[in-house]
Structures are given as C-alpha cells and as structure tokens.
C-alpha cells in the first residue's frame, strides 16, 4: 500500500502514557473476563476473555478514527486489511482451486487434498490455462499475453450481462410502467361520491400510478444527452431530476436507519458482551 509519511517521529510522552493506560485496561479486562467466564475449562475462559477484550479493543480503535488518525486506528486498519487479504486468498485457493478444479483435473491431487474426485472435464483445464496465462503478466516480455484471457472474461461477462439486464431490468421496468391511470374507474359520479384518502382508495392508488408514469417519463427525459433541455423538454427534465432527488432523499433516510442498526449492534457488543452492564 502506498501509505505512510516519510518523517517518522518517536512517540511523545503523552502517547506513551496513553499506550500504557490502554494496555493496562486491556489486561484488567482480559483478567476480569477470564475469571468470570462461564466456559467449562480455565483455558477456554482465558481464550474467550482474550477474544472478547481484543474485539472490543479493535472496535474502539476503529471508532477512534472519528477523532483523527492515530496509532490505534492504524493498527486496527493494517490488521484488518492484512487478515482479510490473507483470508480471501486462502478462501480462493480452497474453494476454487481445491474445491472446483482439483476434483475435475486429477485423481492424485484429489486424494492428496482429500476431496472426492468427480470426473475429468476439459472445461476446467481451459479455466486453469486462463489463470496461468493471466500470471504471465509477471514476466516482462510475455506480459502482453495476459490481456487475452482478460479480454475474453470481460467481453463474455459483459455480453451475458447485456442480455440479462435488458430482460430483467429494462423490459420488466417498461412493462411495470403500464399502470392503470384510473384505478377501478366506474364513472365520475362514483369517483366523487366515494372520494377517500385511504391508502387503498381509488384516489390514492390512481395518484400513485400517475406519479410512477410521470416520474419514469420525466426521468427518462432528464437522461437525454443529445438534445438541449429547453422549453417543455427542459421543464420535463427539471421535473425528472426533482423526482430523482426526492427518491434519493427517501432512500437516504431508509438506509441511514439500517446503518444505525449496525451501530446499535456494535454498542450492544461493547456494553453487553464486553462490559456486561446491559
């Protein structure tokens, strides 16, 4: 990673004191959790106490970013990045190479990795060859050949996605816009005599459908790039961006509520699992 500044200074006395205090709090917490643990053996209590204390330490270290960059955040960040990168590499090896390739490539390797051999398949050898060619980029003179499998992978997936998105997103959305603009219409007399603001009432449902139709059409007009947005076209475009912004506002509030639930989860961990005061 291209991080870090060049001028490394030795930590000040204040920083050293803070580090010592944190270390002491960590040890006290660990001893406390280990002695009050409910596990069957002492060793398990010591281990669980360490894990809970360490998890709380990492949580608080990440939260400390809200103040500023600091050694605790740097430690948690580098640990998190390093562990996750290694984890994904191991996961990729065991799930893709051992889990998928080996059972279709070699009986000897299947026996070695203790996975059931399935059947030989040339398809997996092609994929393996692609992987090897991709690694050719590490050789300065043969690096160009690594672009071929990349081109095949990107081109194939993009073409596949084109059809999929056109069918699932595009066509379905156009079809869903064919809404009845006058829901359950039985004449103006019936409409006005049964006027109601109920969510399932004729007025609200019809108004909702109008908003969907007008919103879709004006939103589409906003995304016309090769025509000047003036006059009626400009008015429709402005209405389109207004509708988009109102939608974004609603989505923002909805998602923020989800994020708050994540925060509540971490606070519950700190106060319940760690401090046991809830």
């Amino acid at each position: 990673m291209a991080t870090g500044n060049g001028n490394r200074k030795s930590p000040s006395n204040a920083v050293k004191i803070i580090l010592v205090i944190v270390a002491v709090v960590f040890l006290i917490s660990w001893i406390s959790k280990a002695t009050t643990g409910m596990a069957d053996s002492t060793w398990l209590n010591i281990r669980d106490g360490f894990l809970i204390t360490f998890a709380a330490f990492l949580t608080l270290s990440i939260f400390s970013f809200l103040y500023n960059d600091n050694p605790f955040y740097k430690f948690a960040e580098h640990l998190y990045v390093g562990v996750s990168a290694a984890y994904w590499m191991c996961l990729g090896f065991w799930s893709i190479i051992v889990g998928n390739f080996v059972p279709h490539a070699s009986k000897t390797l299947s026996t070695f990795f203790k996975v059931p051999f399935q059947e030989y398949s040339w398809f997996y050898y092609v994929a393996f060859a692609f992987g090897v060619i991709l690694l050719m980029r590490l050789l300065p003179k043969a690096g160009w050949i690594a672009r071929w499998p990349l081109a095949v992978i990107i081109g194939t997936t993009a073409g596949f996605n084109l059809s999929r998105y056109l069918h699932s997103d595009f066509m379905s959305q156009v079809g869903n816009t064919f809404q009845p603009l006058f829901v359950d219409w039985q004449g103006a007399g019936h409409f006005f005599s049964n006027l109601s603001l109920a969510a399932d009432g004729q007025l609200v449902m019809s108004a909702g459908n109008w908003i969907v139709v007008v919103g879709v059409l004006c939103g589409l007009v906003y995304f016309f790039f090769s025509k000047e947005h003036k006059g009626m076209f400009g008015a429709a475009s402005r209405l389109g961006i207004w509708i988009l912004m109102i939608t974004f506002g609603a989505s923002f509030g909805y998602t923020v509520m989800g994020r708050i639930s994540l925060l509540v989860g971490r606070i519950t961990f700190l106060f319940d699992d760690w401090l046991s005061i809830l």
Binding site: M1, A2, T3, I62, F65, D69, E77, V81, S84, W88
Partner: peptide, 25 residues
C-alpha cells in the same frame, strides 16, 4: 506501477485501508 495497487477483497477492510490512505496522503 505501485500507484495502482490491490488492498483487499473484503468490503470494510478495503474501506478502512482507503480511509487510512486518504487521511495520510
């Protein structure tokens, strides 16, 4: 070559790494 670099394929670890880069660089 090092200006384009891999961080990690874990979503929030990636975020932590990029946020650290932002605050330092």
């Amino acid at each position: 070559e090092d200006s384009v670099y891999f961080v990690t394929s874990s979503q929030f670890a990636y975020v932590a790494g990029v946020m650290g880069t932002m605050i330092r660089e």
